[in-house]
Computed example of a mutant assay.
Amino acid sequence: MKIAIFASGNGTNFEVLAKQFQKRELAGELKLLFCDHPDAYVIQRAKKFNIPVETFTVKSCGEKRLYEEKIAHILIENQIDFIILAGYMRVIGQPILAKYEGCIVNLHPAYLPEYPGLHSIERAFADHKKQTGVTVHYIDSGVDSGPIIAQEHVAILPDDTVETLEKRVHDCEHRLYPATLKKILQNRCDK
Rank of each mutant, 00 (worst) to 15 (best):
A18T: 04
I43R: 13
H170M: 15
P109I: 10
C103F: 10
A126V: 01
C172Q: 14
I43P: 08
F49K: 00
P109L: 07
Y138C: 08
E77L: 13
E101L: 11
V136F: 04
N187Q: 15
C35H: 02
K19M: 06
R90D: 00
P178E: 03
I3S: 07
N10I: 12
I76M: 10
D190K: 14
A46H: 05
E68Q: 13
I104M: 07
L157N: 13
L185S: 10
I121W: 03
G102R: 06
D39G: 09
I104R: 08
K99V: 14
E101D: 05
A7H: 06
E122P: 00
I43D: 12
A150M: 02
A7Q: 06
H137V: 08
L32V: 11
I84V: 15
A46V: 09
Q186S: 14
V91I: 15
V53T: 15
K183P: 00
N187L: 14
Q79M: 04
G142E: 05
P95H: 01
P116T: 12
P113S: 11
L30M: 06
Y67W: 13
E54R: 13
N106R: 10
Y67V: 03
T55G: 05
C61H: 09
K183E: 14
Y177C: 09
D140W: 06
N13Y: 04
Q186M: 10
E101K: 10
K129A: 12
V91H: 00
V154W: 02
T180Y: 08
F82S: 05
A46I: 10
K167P: 00
I149T: 09
A179F: 07
D171A: 14
L181W: 06
A110I: 07
I76S: 11
G117S: 08
M89T: 00
V154R: 03
C61G: 05
E152Q: 15
V91F: 01
I71W: 04
E63Q: 11
D160E: 09
G146W: 07
T135W: 10
L66M: 11
A4F: 06
G117A: 07
R45G: 10
S145P: 02
N10F: 14
H73N: 12
V134N: 09
A7V: 03
K31N: 08
E15Y: 02
I156H: 01
G9N: 03
R168H: 06
K64W: 06
V91P: 01
L181H: 03
L30A: 11
S60V: 05
K59D: 12
V16M: 12
E166R: 14
I184D: 02
A46W: 09
E114L: 14
K183T: 15
G142C: 07
G133Y: 10
K191S: 13
I80D: 01
E29S: 11
E25R: 12
Q79W: 00
A179S: 15
N13Q: 09
H128V: 03
L75P: 06
L85R: 03
